[in-house]
C-alpha cells in the first residue's frame, strides 16, 4: 500500500471517526449476513428460500447503510457544533443532544449486528431461541430509551434558555396522544403474547413492566424532546440562527416519530397479520428512508449552525 493511500485513510479517520466506525460496522454486517447460518424455522415462517432470504437481507442493508451513515454523520456534526459553543448553556444542551443521537446511531448498528449473530447462534443451537428473542428485544429497547432521555435533557435545557415551559394545555394534549399510542401498543403486544404463543418469551408481568412501560416512557420522553426543540426553534431570536435550528429540530422530530412508528411496525411484524413479507419489507424500506432523511436534516442543520460559529 502506498504512503499516499495510508495518509488519505489516516486523514479520513481523523476527520470523521464516526463515519469510519460506521463503515467498519457496515462491512462487518454485510460479512455476517453472507456467511452466518440461517434458522430453517425462520425460512419456513417467511415461506422463502435461503437465497431469497439472503437477497432480502442484503437489499435491506442498502437503506440500512444509508440510515447508519446519516445517523453517524448527524451525531458527529451535532457534536462538532456543541464543541464550538464550549461551556455556554447552549453548548452543554447541544452536547447532550449529540450524545443522545450518538447512542441512537450506535444502537441501530449494535442491535442489527447482535441480531445477526444471535440468529446464527440459534440456527445451530435451537435451545438458545428464547434467550435470543429476549436479548434482541432489550437491545432494540435500551438504546432509544437512554438516547431519548439524554436528548430530552438537552432539549429541556434549550427550552429553559428561552423560558418556554411545558404548559398545562400541551401536557393535556400529550397525555391524550400518548394514551392512544400506549393503549394500541399494549393491545398489539398482549394480543401478540396470547395469540402467538408468547413471542417475547416473557411472562405478562415482565412483558408489561420491562418492555411495554419502558417503550411508553421512551416515546413520552421522545415526543416531549421534539416538542421542546420545536418550541425553542420557534421562540429563539435570530433569523439565520432560527433557519438552521429549524432544520435540526425538524430532523430530530422526524427521527423520533419514525423511530416510534418503526417500533410499532416491529410489533406488527411479530404478530399475525394480513400483510405479506414483501409489503412489510416495503413499509420498513419507506420508514428507513424517512428516518435517514431525518438524520440528514439534523446533519445539515448542525453544519449550518456550526458555520455561524466559524465565520
Amino acid at each position: 500500500m502506498s504512503l499516499t493511500k495510508v495518509g488519505k485513510r489516516t486523514m479520513l479517520i481523523k476527520r470523521s471517526p464516526a463515519l469510519t466506525w460506521c463503515g467498519i460496522i457496515l462491512v462487518l454486517t454485510i460479512f455476517l449476513a453472507l456467511v452466518l447460518p440461517v434458522n430453517d424455522a425462520t425460512l419456513h415462517r417467511l415461506h422463502i428460500s435461503l437465497a431469497i432470504y439472503r437477497e432480502a437481507i442484503l437489499s435491506l442493508l442498502i437503506p440500512i447503510g444509508i440510515i447508519w451513515f446519516s445517523a453517524f454523520y448527524a451525531y458527529e456534526k451535532t457534536g462538532q457544533y456543541a464543541e464550538t459553543l464550549r461551556k455556554t448553556d447552549e453548548g452543554r444542551a447541544f452536547a447532550h443532544i449529540a450524545r443522545g443521537l450518538q447512542l441512537l446511531a450506535w444502537g441501530l448498528a449494535v442491535a442489527t449486528v447482535l441480531s445477526l449473530i444471535l440468529a446464527a447462534a440459534t440456527a445451530s443451537t435451537p435451545q438458545l431461541q428464547g434467550a435470543r428473542i429476549i436479548i434482541d428485544n432489550y437491545a432494540t429497547l435500551v438504546f432509544p430509551l437512554v438516547g431519548f432521555t439524554i436528548i430530552g435533557m438537552g432539549t429541556r435545557q434549550l427550552a429553559q434558555t428561552v423560558k418556554a415551559p411545558l404548559t398545562l394545555r400541551v401536557l393535556r394534549i400529550l397525555f391524550v396522544v400518548l394514551a392512544l399510542i400506549g393503549v394500541f401498543f399494549t393491545r398489539y403486544a398482549l394480543r401478540n403474547h396470547y395469540a402467538n404463543n408468547n413471542p417475547y418469551m416473557l411472562p405478562v408481568f415482565f412483558l408489561v413492566t420491562t418492555i411495554i412501560v419502558p417503550y411508553l416512557y421512551t416515546w413520552f420522553v421522545g415526543v416531549v424532546a421534539a416538542y421542546d426543540l420545536q418550541n425553542y426553534a420557534h421562540k429563539v431570536k435570530g433569523v439565520l440562527y432560527q433557519q438552521a435550528l429549524s432544520l435540526l429540530a425538524l430532523g430530530i422530530t422526524i427521527v423520533i416519530i419514525s423511530s416510534i412508528i418503526i417500533q410499532y411496525m416491529t410489533t406488527l411484524m411479530n404478530s399475525d397479520n394480513d400483510l405479506s413479507f414483501g409489503s412489510l419489507l416495503l413499509l420498513v424500506y419507506g420508514l428507513l428512508v424517512v428516518e435517514a432523511a431525518g438524520y440528514a436534516l439534523i446533519a445539515y442543520g448542525a453544519r449550518r449552525l456550526k458555520r455561524i460559529e466559524e465565520v
Binding site: T88, E90, T161, V236, K237, G238, V239, L240, Y241, Q242, L305, I308, E309, V311
Partner: peptide, 15 residues
C-alpha cells in the same frame, strides 16, 4: 446582530 444570529450574536461580533 441578535436579530439575525440570535444567541450566536455576541460570539460572532467577538470573533
Amino acid at each position: 446582530t441578535h436579530v439575525y444570529l440570535g444567541p450566536a450574536a455576541d460570539r460572532f461580533i467577538d470573533r
